Amino acid sequence: MSQRVRVAVLAGGPSAEHEVSLQSAQAVLDALPRKLYEPVPVIIDRQGRWPVELRRGLADVVFPVLHGPFGEDGVIQGHLETLGIPYVGCGVLASAVGMDKVAMRRAFLAEDIPVTPHVWFTAHEWRATTDHWSLVKTLDWPMYVKPAGLGSSIGISRATSVEELRAGVELALTYDRTVVVEQGVSARELICGVLGDHDTPDASVPGELIVHGDWLDYEAKYLSQAEIATIPATLPDRVAEDVRELSLRAFRAIGGYGLARVDFLQERETGRLYVLEINTMPGFTARSVYARAWAASGVPYPELLRRLIDLAFARSGS
């Protein structure tokens, strides 16, 4: 194209991950090569109000750097589909499945992708019994309690007793009406980036998250200045290849397109790998482990953005 491509970068939104989205979007805006692209920032407020009406005349392609509900769960993707505007990242179905921790695990289990033991229940099921232990009795302490449809470690608690379980579930229910409780595993936490289309995606070198305490919480990910990952991870070649292969399988299991970050647990005692979750719009902040994993794989940040935008046009046939 002789003219610069207009890229609408969506940020903010009504989810609990509003601030993270703003950080990610600013990094994208700063790094878009100005010779190729004309960035158009579109900041959605916490009530879901848009500053402008999104339309084809406003942008040639949309980069929805929105995390959590309304941005990463298929809602904005469906809206962009109705407008007929090319957009970066996974489509409606993959976004919805990747965002819902119950649907995601069902998709993984259907493809024989290993996941940690877990249970899930609704707010109604939780309120309908006083024997809360009965809902999690197949698991051992410690357990991790999570809202089914949220990311960035928001609303997550570690429980080592029924009292802590109750507190954790009540916290999770302030964010979602469905709760997932996972078996705790003494493990290394690994990540791997996926980039590409449905048929021939590529996997990055794996990284390892540096976890101080029981898990990498929201503050450690986004507010602390401490290092949060070692990239590449120090792994035997065989394990690194297993991580990459499982990442591609997880991506295909949800019907992914464009990008995703796959998170793993590697059990310390056995070395077994579990796929913890897949993130269809991982953080794009300057400290983003997704971007760093691809930089370590030979794809610097501006080139990563270019590839993602090219993939958006390729899917739409533009």
Results as ranks from 00 to 15, higher is better:
239 V>N: 03
12 G>D: 02
81 E>M: 08
243 V>Q: 03
104 M>Y: 02
247 S>M: 03
20 V>G: 08
154 I>W: 07
37 Y>P: 05
136 V>Y: 01
256 G>R: 00
284 F>G: 05
316 S>T: 03
300 P>N: 00
94 A>Y: 06
288 S>H: 09
263 D>S: 12
49 R>W: 01
197 D>R: 09
279 N>R: 09
74 G>W: 07
125 E>A: 15
10 L>F: 03
71 G>W: 00
18 H>Y: 12
263 D>G: 12
115 V>W: 03
90 C>P: 04
171 L>R: 15
256 G>T: 02
89 G>L: 13
46 R>V: 13
140 D>M: 08
156 I>L: 10
277 E>H: 13
134 S>C: 02
40 V>N: 07
11 A>E: 11
255 G>C: 11
85 I>G: 01
160 T>P: 01
143 M>Y: 03
154 I>H: 10
251 F>M: 11
170 E>F: 01
124 H>M: 07
258 G>N: 06
168 G>W: 00
137 K>H: 11
196 G>Y: 03
193 G>S: 14
277 E>K: 13
211 V>I: 15
133 W>D: 10
40 V>L: 13
58 L>H: 11
249 R>T: 01
60 D>Y: 02
273 L>S: 10
54 L>E: 01
213 G>A: 12
203 A>E: 08
142 P>I: 05
198 H>G: 00
298 G>I: 11
281 M>K: 05
63 F>S: 11
126 W>F: 14
120 W>P: 06
311 L>Q: 14
141 W>L: 04
302 P>V: 06
304 L>I: 02
237 D>R: 14
203 A>Y: 05
125 E>T: 15
82 T>E: 08
173 L>D: 01
58 L>Q: 09
250 A>D: 10
281 M>D: 03
195 L>A: 05
27 A>Y: 01
149 G>C: 15
196 G>E: 01
203 A>N: 10
207 G>Y: 06
27 A>N: 15
228 I>G: 03
56 R>S: 14
2 S>F: 05
288 S>G: 12
110 A>G: 05
168 G>K: 02
264 F>Y: 13
90 C>N: 15
178 T>F: 00
272 R>P: 05
85 I>T: 04
36 L>Q: 12
37 Y>V: 03
239 V>T: 15
92 V>L: 08
